[in-house]
Simulated assay, not measured.
Amino acid sequence: MNKEILRPNRRLGQNFFVNPRLLRELVDRCALDENYLVFEVGAGTGELTALLVECAGAVISCEIDRRFAPLLKDRFAGVDNLQLLFTDVRKLNFAELAADRTQNRLAVLANLPYYITTVVLEQVMTQIPQTDRLGLMTQLEAAERLTAPPGTPGYGPTAIVLALWARVQSITKVAAGNFRPRPPVESCWLCLERRSDMGYAALLAEPGFVDGWLSFLKSVFTQQRKTLANALDSALRRAFDRETETAEIASILRSLNLDPQSRPGVAEPQQWLDLYCLLLQCE
């Protein structure tokens, strides 16, 4: 195997996982079977890919670095439940790729550059909100931010949607010695399972709903230093192209037990969902 091919590309944020035993343990926690279509982000040399094709019904693996194309095509020649894509994951349309598949469950597993963790997670939640399981190798700080509770610095739009969309099964710290090269930050394996048993699960799985809700939340949180009433006023104009009287905004917030003079970061995820649904009904 050409050592030049295996040299990590720092520009792409590559850190290869080099502990096969631990990798298998982490994959096992996702409880995949032949009913799953699995999207893999960051195939690299194919270590994770090899485990996925063993346990899943079908695997679509994405790798941005075309240096790995010959290696991966040779390694998985004849593997009929694997589709290799050599492109930037941010350009993928997950919904189109998942359409008309015989597998009835979806999972996403990724050892991806840490700086695109939030982007890819939002992409999954908006494009394929029916995804059942996620396993993400990411920076520990990013995982803590994504799972941050109200009133903490990391709490924001992605954390709000994620809190209702999925439950955290586990956050497993992964030592730097398990990677080549060693990353300069703490890493973890974030394992998530969609909240399919909740009353709002069907709503969140509707095409376009999470996308609209997330856009609305981002409009509010760009004004997070303002009072909730003022931030909502600005967001309504941007997201709904709607002028609303101050008294009406205050009334809407109080109906959800929210103080109009509080800050956006104190509202619970369920309150944000109820607020968005209420605003949609007013349209």
Rank of each mutant, 00 (worst) to 15 (best):
T117M: 11
F68C: 03
Y36V: 09
L253F: 07
L232M: 13
R225N: 06
P150T: 13
M1C: 10
V108C: 10
C30G: 09
S187K: 08
F94P: 07
D259T: 00
N35V: 02
G154M: 03
V18P: 01
L12C: 09
L72Q: 04
T147M: 08
T45Q: 15
L192V: 11
L146H: 07
V38K: 09
A143W: 01
V174H: 02
A56V: 06
E47S: 14
E186P: 00
A205V: 07
T246A: 14
L6S: 01
L146W: 06
T87S: 07
S170D: 13
M198I: 05
P20M: 15
L228E: 03
L232K: 13
Q281Y: 03
P129K: 15
I171V: 09
L82Y: 15
V210C: 08
T117A: 09
G154S: 03
R182Y: 01
R75M: 00
W272C: 02
W165H: 12
A231H: 04
T158Q: 00
T227N: 03
L52M: 05
T49S: 09
R101W: 01
L92T: 12
Q271H: 02
R238T: 06
L48Q: 08
V89T: 10
A231P: 04
P269R: 01
L192D: 11
S262Q: 12
R225W: 10
T102N: 14
N9T: 07
K226S: 03
E47F: 11
E186T: 10
C191S: 13
R29V: 03
C191A: 15
A98N: 03
R29P: 07
E25M: 14
N9K: 11
E122M: 12
L52V: 02
M125K: 04
P260K: 09
A202G: 09
S196P: 00
E144K: 11
E245T: 07
V27N: 07
I171W: 00
L236Y: 02
P149T: 01
T172K: 06
Q271V: 06
T222G: 00
R66K: 15
T117S: 12
E206D: 08
L214T: 00
D274V: 08
D132G: 08
A201G: 11
S61G: 12
R11W: 11
F17D: 02
